[in-house]
Design a binder for these strands. Structure first.
Lengths: 205, 205
DNA sequence: GGGTAAACTGCACCCGCGGTACAGTAATTG
DNA sequence: CAATTACTGTACCGCGGGTGCAGTTTACCC
């Protein structure tokens, strides 16, 4: 192994997969070090305890998700000047990307934290809230731009509507896992898209 | 204590609360027996191991949820003959009921199982799938009746639409927990209601 | 009122896992 | 060549799940 082998990242990759499928508590340090081919001491050299690993996993996960959304909805904005149509294109691309994941979406650490609250320290629960509020801000801004052009056919709170993107993603992941159908998430995103479409597009198309 | 004290149910009540907030693995038998004021032997008299407790919890939880939905949407059907309006009334009542829970929805065991897959036995994962499919059937039947009268303004698959109810509930619970806002779930349900409304109601209202 | 079964208590013990402590070592870098 | 980084090895602790089994209380039935 030695220096160039990036052990810390390898530990985190192994841990992330395991945490998303089995849950944090069920992921033992023992199995991580076996798969990473290091010793227990090696693990605790990189992370002083399991909670520090959780924090590192969470930070990295959120950063990646943000980059992914920047990428998808950034590209969508390039493809259409109108904010509504750009967003609809973005949702379509998001759905397609999720449908193309061979084993389905691996799960979301936000939900993992929610369903294992007490075992994480306060820091990570606060970070969780912050990350959800960042999604809200992102999509609220989008819906703000849209509503300056299109008037919604139903009265809606734009913050709630922004949260609905997160809701459908988190709920869709749960459904995909429960149904053992990797494509379920993608189809739920398309339903959200359908809602946004008929909510803002004028009735006499 | 003695005979009439219904120890088994008391164990399950304590365990359910703990499982929904902390997760299954983080719920120790030790804390359950302290709160239930029994001994370890007493616990293992009722459940041969933790997995049997999980199975019992899950069965009871699903039964209660089904009864709740029967009640709410049954009452809604009594209040309006038209299937669309009855369903919209049902969603409103569901939302109001969730908003009235003092500490918000406690969480859903379906999601708990999804995010802790490997630690439960196969039996419980199968039951999870069955329970989600039962929700699908219930709401698919509703949307079937609706679509025989109203023609949707967008092409939608009725199974997916039925799943969206579960999606928004599961996702909404995650959002409520993450945001630490008990009312978030209720507001997401109302957005789903808004979608169903403008999806089926004719454009020239 | 005595017997039986249900519903426990008490105690002793094993294992796996998270975590600590600390000494030793191989490779890299300045 | 010295110092730092990135580990290994070993020994040990406490907690929680789980087993085994003998003993005890309580309710109810005959």
């Amino acid at each position: 192994m030695g220096r160039g082998s990036n052990t810390r990242e390898r530990i985190m990759d192994i841990a992330e997969t395991s945490v998303l499928t089995k849950g944090f508590v069920a992921t033992s340090i023992e199995e991580i070090i076996v798969e990473a081919e290091i010793t227990k001491s090696g693990f605790f050299y990189h992370f002083k305890d399991k909670n520090e690993l959780a924090n590192a996993l969470f930070d990295r996960y959120i950063d990646r998700e943000d980059l992914l959304l920047d990428d998808i909805f950034g590209r969508a904005d390039e493809l259409h000047d109108d904010p509504l149509h750009a967003f609809l294109i973005g949702l379509k691309m998001l759905s397609e990307m999720l449908a193309d994941l061979p084993n389905g979406h691996p799960g979301c650490l936000v939900a993992t934290v929610c369903y294992n609250e007490q075992i994480f320290d306060r820091k990570i629960r606060d970070k969780n809230q912050v990350s959800v509020l960042r999604w809200r801000k992102r999509f609220r801004d989008t819906f703000q731009s849209i509503s300056e052009i299109y008037q919604p056919n139903e009265p809606v709170d734009l913050d709630d509507l922004a949260d609905m993107v997160s809701t459908v993603v988190e709920g869709g992941i749960v459904m995909s896992k429960a149904l053992q159908d990797p494509k379920a998430l993608a189809r739920q995103i398309l339903l959200l898209r359908s809602y946004i479409k008929i909510l803002f597009l004028p009735r006499n198309h």
